[in-house]
Each structure stands twice: as structure tokens, then as C-alpha cells.
Design a protein around this nucleic acid. Sequence first.
DNA 1: ACGTTATCTGGGAGCGTTCCCAGGTTCACA
DNA 2: TGTGAACCTGGGAACGCTCCCAGATAACGT
Lengths: 334, 334
Amino acid sequence: MNLEDIARKAGVSRSTVSRVINNEKYVSESVRQRVMQVIQQERFQPNPAARTLVTRRSNIIGTAISQTTNVFFGDNSYYPMLLQGIAEAINKKNYAMLLWLAESRDDGVSFAERVMRHRQADGLIITSVRDDDPLFNALIQQDRRFVMVETPPKWNDRISFVTVDNERAAEGVIDHLVAIGRRRIATITGLMSIRDAYDRLQGYTRGLHKAGLPQDPNLIVYGGFHRAEGYHGMRQLLPFQPDAVFAGGDTIALGVLDALAEAGLRVPEDVAVVGFDDLDVAERHSLTTVSHSVQRVGSTAATLLIDLIEGQLEHPHQIVLPTELVIRRSTVAV
Amino acid sequence: MNLEDIARKAGVSRSTVSRVINNEKYVSESVRQRVMQVIQQERFQPNPAARTLVTRRSNIIGTAISQTTNVFFGDNSYYPMLLQGIAEAINKKNYAMLLWLAESRDDGVSFAERVMRHRQADGLIITSVRDDDPLFNALIQQDRRFVMVETPPKWNDRISFVTVDNERAAEGVIDHLVAIGRRRIATITGLMSIRDAYDRLQGYTRGLHKAGLPQDPNLIVYGGFHRAEGYHGMRQLLPFQPDAVFAGGDTIALGVLDALAEAGLRVPEDVAVVGFDDLDVAERHSLTTVSHSVQRVGSTAATLLIDLIEGQLEHPHQIVLPTELVIRRSTVAV
DNA sequence: ACGTTATCTGGGAGCGTTCCCAGGTTCACA
DNA sequence: TGTGAACCTGGGAACGCTCCCAGATAACGT
């Protein structure tokens, strides 16, 4: 069943059917009605491949999450929330989403290669990219259209991205901790090869400086975004008796709470804890955290990408979303 | 850049380039080398739309998750795990995945309509379908190829699906609870309109019957798969003093634990708790549960679908994966 | 009445592949 | 040396759309 068939049944030409389907003007009302009826009756849907072939648009955008298995799910609802946000925006614009998840073990074909190989998408959303990410580099090299969630590895003003002001937000965290009287403020960072994590550390440093507090290297632990890393990080910090810990991500903070509970320390009386991202677990654990609506980041990124694709926005375009410090019982007892 | 361009540069014909790309025989080694070199040098990749147009294959499979926002993430890592499993299988076969997530509010276009509209996928994986699911019905009506994860609403031997033997597994749970001396065994079910939940309840009933225990209607609470529903369900059960609770899903079980903790009851001494699915949270909460590797369900479904698409398997095909009762501290104290 | 313009309709060309067939060469074997 | 099979290569046709142009008809102002 194709345009020609519909045309025959409606007693018009292929072109006219195409006009009706694409809602173009210059079709008389009576003809439009007749064609519509045939289309509905036959449950006709135009072949997307043929359409894509000529328009060079698939109305599909791709999302590539280049993280290993264990990060995607688990405590970490970051990616599901991001996906949900992307899906929302996409639906609104009548696009579809192609999803690639990296695996821990790459059997032969690398993740980047796999993503690059399928070229059906009009554009890509990528996230959690490291400095040396092969996908990132391949995209640039082959001049493919993409938007990053979070800040690009090396600041590059030719890249479009959506992020939050990590540095300023982190600084705000320190302000808060100082305000509630903490002086030995530690931090456990996320992966330093991810720009956001790095920026949060910068904010931490600036916050301490501003408050006139000394920076003790013993109070900085470099880690990753996993709960286990938060746990071990905190155990490493314990001997140095911090009275507050700023975790570079909520999942890390959960690990911190685990370690503190195990050590018999009270939160927030003995140690105040702050996270980042405001994942749904944060509320459940009464965790003070920096909120920036991960879903909103996702939908913003998708909307941006689609606007770029449709030429309604100039490339590159960069968006910094606001953050908000949500104060819960992990820093201020009720 | 297309086949013809490559052909010209390599001094051969379009057809020959096509043969090289598709790794067909009847191409001399020297020509193959020459063409390959040009392809690599130009970083040529064939246009997927054109290819799809003629082959009627996109090498894309779709996954539709028709659940509202709040189920997708949160405590519930079920879907992310499923996706990861699907992604693994898909990667292996060199397919890509199109993902649709339902939203809570449908703005105009329904979820089913949206999924049906995009016809790029060679087949679909659908999950968490209710009795009256419009997507389910539309797929059948329009004769689209699909595989269900979990048992179809009404047993229909024309549908391909992957599931576990929910009834038998649930029965095994009751056997275990009886074996550790429990007599007042309650259950909180998932959504009854989802077949799996219904089957688990059947297994519960059969288990009680087999053990010669009376079935007390007060000990059955009909709910949904959310943590909050587990919590409220348990509060509803408290007056009837059950000594064990079989939750129709791990997320429900978490809610049960919340309510028990709040009521000051000990697990498992006062009340034993069992879940279903063995999500990663189960281990963290030492929850006895029925394990069936959600990831494996996902990869099995994807593999099945691809085999059906490629004609290596007859449609319909139905797979029941094994389950295993994982005993942890929520039923047996150490 | 006649141009001029807006409205409507149809058909050819082309998007970039794969598939099929025809023709040419090479090779094994009688 | 002839003959059939296997091997290799090229070009036309088709997949189902959109885009462009040409032509027909209606509407309008002078």
C-alpha cells in the first residue's frame, strides 16, 4: 500500500495524496476529505524510509549513554530520569528516540563505532563523556550534529550543550555548610575526567577560600560516581574527622551515609552531608542536595537538539540551567 | 557521497561497491581491496534509508514501555535492567533500539498512537501491558511483529513472549515460608490487570492450599507495584497480624519493610518478607526474593524478536525462563 | 472583454540503495 | 579443443516518497 494506491482509490494523483498527508495548502476541501477518508479506511501510513531518503530527515534523534552497565541502573536513577526528560520533549515534537547503552565489555566493535555506524538519527544527545572519549572525537571529526548533556571535556565553543553552573552551585553548598558552623569540610568528588565533577571541586575550593578556611588535602578524596566509592571515600576521610562532607553526586552521598552509619556517627550532628543532583533517592534519605531537575536537563537538551536540526537555532548553542540548594535533614536537624 | 561516487573513485561499478559493502562473494580480491580502501579513505557509510527502502529491513527494533513516569525510575530499576538486557542482545546482532516511554499525561496523541505512527522498527518489544492496552490491540490488529515481556493479558497462542513461571515461583515462596514455620501468610499483589501479578496470586493460593492452610481474605491486599502501595498495604494488614508477607514485587516489599520498621516489628522474627524479581535493591535490603534475572529476560526477548524477524524461528514462539528463590535475611536470620 | 494572479491538480525526476539479468572471463575436465 | 560450470562485473529497474514545473481552472481588477 503506497501513495499511488491511495491515489487510485481516491481518484486523484500521488501528488495530491502527498499534499494531504503533509497538510499542505492548495488542496480543495472536497478532495482533502475524500483522500483522508481513504487513508483512514486503509489505515495507510507513509513509508518512513522513502520519506527519509528524499527529505534527508528521519525525525529520529539518538541518545548515547557511554557508561558501563552498573552505572545505568542501581541506585543511580540519573540516566532513567534523563531519558524520561528526553522522551517528553521528543514526544512533543513528534520525534522518536534511538538509544545506545554502552556495555562493560566491548565485544569487538567499540561503543563509539556502534553508535557512529547507524546513521539513522538526525542528531545525537550524548552524556557522561570523558576527556578522551572516542565517541566524542568521532562525532566532531565526522561533523555530526550533537548536543552534550553536561559540560564538554575541553571547553569548546563550537559544541552545543546543556549544563548547570556546577562551580557556582558547589560554592553555594560550601556557603551553606559554613553558615551552619562547619569548619572541617571534606569532599568526595566524581570522576575527574568528567568536566562536571571537576567544576564542582573548583566550586568547593572557591567556597573554602571565600570563607577564609584552609584547604586540607586530606579532606579531598578523588573518586567516581558509585555508591561504593562514596562508602570507601568516607572511610578514608574518617581519621581526619571532618564535620561535613560534600559529595559530588547523590549516589556518592548514599555511600557516605552508609559509612557514617557503620561508624556510629550521627547525621547531621557529627557530620553534615550534602549531595548533588537531587535524584529521587535524595528525598527518601533526607539528603541536602543541589537540585537541578535531571528530567528538565534531558528535555532541554532534546528540545535544543531538535531546534538545531530544524534550523530554528544557530549552532552552537549553550544553555546553563539554574540550580537550587534543597536543604534537608542531612545538614539541618528538625 | 554515495555508491556511485565510490565506484567512480575505485574505477568499478556501483554494483561491485555494493557487493563489497555487503560482503558478498564473486568479487576478486584485488578489486575488493581497492574498493575497501576508497571506502575507508572517504569514511563512506551507506545511506540507511535507501537501504531500508529496498530491503524492507531497518535493523532497528523498538521497545515500548507503557508505564507512567514514576514507575520508570525511582526504586524501580526493573525497566533500566530490562533495557540493558535488550541492549546487550541488540548490540550483538548489530541492531539499534528505538525507545518509547509513556508519559503520565498524554497530550493529544496517545502513547499507542505514537508508537504505531513511527514505523521504522522491524519489530517491537512491549512490556507491562494491561488487559485493555490499546497498544497491544493496535499491534495485533495491524499485524505488526512483536514480542511481549511477561505473559500476555489473555493467553493467546498467537503471541510470542518471554516470561517466567510466575505461578510456580510464587508457590515456591509459600513452600519456603511454610517450611520456616509461618502460618499466617499474607500477600500484597501487583496490578491485577497485569497477568504476571495475577499468576503470582494464583501461586500463593495454590501454595496455601497445598500446605493445608486456610485462605483468609483479610490477608490479601490488592495493590500496584509501587513502594507506597506496599507501605499502605502492610499498614492495612497489620491488624490481622500476619507472620509473613509475600509481596508481588521487590518494590512493594520495600514499602512493606518501611511499614514494619515504623510499626517496630522485627524482620524476620515477627514478620518474614519475600519479594519478587531480585532487583538490585533486594540484595541491599537482604530481601528474600524470586530471582529471574531481569536483564536475561530482556536479552532473551530481543534475541527472540530478532530471530523471528530474520525468519530463523517460527512465529509464535514462547519462552519460559527459570526462576530461583534467593533466601536472604528477610526470612531467615543469620 | 482581457490580462493577472491565486488556487488547484498531475506527472516527471530524483533520492541511494539492492536485486536481477546479461555478458564476459577463467577454469576444470573430457 | 570444446563445453559446461563457476567466477566476476556492469547497468537497468524498482523501492515509495517529495519536489518542481507545467497546465487547468477560478477569482479579480481594469
